[in-house]
Design a protein around this nucleic acid. Structure first.
Lengths: 198, 198, 198, 198
DNA sequence: AATGAATGAGAGTTCATTCAT
DNA sequence: GATGAATGAACTCTCATTCAT
């Protein structure tokens, strides 16, 4: 480790501080009220510093979104194994998704807000459904192997993933409880039952 | 109809024009980019006119939300009949919800955006889940009568309603199709199957 | 009395109501906060009605000022008699001024506010000191007759009238009392003593 | 003096430029016509800059008022000496007041305007008479020592200070002349004579 | 790299004035 | 004459972005 790597670490730390502050504030007060002054205070840096790492507020939010989606994908795919049974993979992956959302409620809320801000950040708007991709692949594979019902891909996705989103929403609103592992497993089991072949 | 009723209609029309313009613009460009200048142009009125009917931009959005939720509830409850079988009521009401969303995509998007704007409009934030109330009642009733599975209320709600939200999202993104009636009925049938007693 | 005089009375009543409302509101909230909406509410007329009698807000305030100054002059000159002693005339007229201010505190405050709004209403700005004219005449006359000190005209005016203004200000602020007649006479006596020849 | 003190001076200068511009414009066009755009142009800064130093237009005017009253008090009390004769102190202090007004006509006009803007700036409205405090103390002291007439405190104040205000008004309107020192001393001498014991 | 004072376009809102009724 | 809904210029204030330090 030399002076440059130290510098590098320092830069990463500031950039991360800014992204973390953005995530926190967007969830506390919404996109609408996010401003660079409060963001810099929350991140513990000067306003100008954010512009060393991001070309604009929009670019900052875009990068945050991409980062969160990436983290989500990595978390979901953890433990994915093509040699296992479809159900096992489904349980693993959807379970991972629920765990991720419950452990990172800010990320969940951010994704939801971001998806419903049409034309706010045009470039990445097309990617709004990329988050569903890993799951979509499993479902298409399972359909070929007839381990799940003969329904259209999107419908399967909706039956298997929709309840997760609604349940996490209810959980975060204090109207449902997903804090215990068996509760989360129960939810995922139900989702699988929604689409498994009779 | 006399001169006074014409005047009355005119006043209503102006307020409605503003609300309709707000709904359109929020969905075209998002809360973030909604501004009173563009809103007034879209509505075909002067900037000041909006302030004859709404005390502030926030109040305008709140009234729009309340109006949409109300319209949704009315649409959902249409045809609800306590003497019918639980499934029939479920099919009717969830079918109504899907029909409403597909017929009024702007309303769907608005509700979704609004729900995920934390602290933007504090007063009505508590009502975010009121939209699920009519459905929740049916589910609780059906649970007592053992016509649906023995699962927690929120989980039933998530299994029955979550797929609807996701499916409408996919439909509006052009990744699924709910334009035909049988497609919508198919979706609702699946939702019922998710929770019906074995 | 015919229909036209009735109409005339009606017009006067509305115009007066507007002027009275303006006087009241200017003193309650200041020129700065006076607006035509509140003015019309206070006067019990429609906003447009004010524009039937005054070409603009500015013209309204100007007319009010001219009216008040006129009322003041009439009140001051009441009982003026060239055959009486200078002191008697002074006591009478300054006494009238003090009585007018104490009886019409709104008029006093309005005059003071109006005098110190430079360029707000340019046309009448030159008349700001017209209010002192009647008094100035007496002083110049008395000077010729050597019944008052040999001081410059403006200085006599200041010595004789300045205490009145300050005392009324203190009275209206609750820091002095001019509610009783002998208190007012005492003040005027002092003012005379300030300038009377030794 | 180093680079930091230069920076310090610059910051002070900017805030002062804004306050000075406000004082100038209020006197040129009145409170009523003061707006932040013209103010910033006059001060040679951007509109937003004013909001770095003052939370609002109202706060700006308040701070300006407090500053002027403070400057006035300091100027008046300069040379006050409890060991001197009452007359000497009176002559010194009232002379200071007249000098201050004549040297700073904008400050005089501002104080007069501000005092007569009821409810425009509520917080400091109570302080409207604080400007008379130093003078009031002298008068009360002199009354105990019987060096001035046996009149009520407010009346003495009015007799001693009222002529100053009126005379400065006439001077600023070009209807009297206080530009020479002996003219100002003459005025103050008269004021003292108004209240001195026989 | 880091700062934060300064900027000024643009936001939400007000309000004097108009005009169809 | 009387009304008050409608107007839109002009207001106060905000905030993403810049740049001298």
């Amino acid at each position: 480790m030399n002076i440059h790597s130290l510098l590098y670490i320092c830069i990463m730390t500031k950039k991360d501080a800014i992204l973390n502050a953005a995530l926190k504030l967007v969830n506390k007060e919404g996109f609408y009220h996010l401003n660079m002054k409060n963001l810099s205070i929350e991140a513990g840096v000067a306003v100008g510093t954010a512009y060393l790492y991001f070309s604009s507020k929009e670019a900052l939010i875009n990068e945050l979104y991409i980062r969160i989606v990436n983290d989500f994908k990595i978390a979901v795919l953890k433990g994915y194994d093509t040699t296992r049974a479809d159900k096992d993979n489904f349980m693993e992956m959807v379970g991972n998704a629920v765990d991720f959302y419950v452990s990172n409620p800010d990320c969940f809320s951010f994704i939801e807000q971001y998806s419903y801000s049409p034309f706010l950040f045009k470039e990445t708007h097309e990617e709004n459904f990329l988050i569903l991709e890993p799951l979509y692949k499993i479902i298409k594979l399972a359909k070929k192997r007839k381990t799940i019902k003969e329904l259209s891909g999107p419908l399967c996705l909706a039956l298997a993933y929709g309840p997760v989103v609604t349940m996490v929403r209810l959980h975060l609103a204090g109207k449902a409880d997903l804090s215990k592992r068996n509760q989360r497993v129960g939810l995922v089991e139900c989702c699988w039952n929604n689409i498994k072949a009779d």
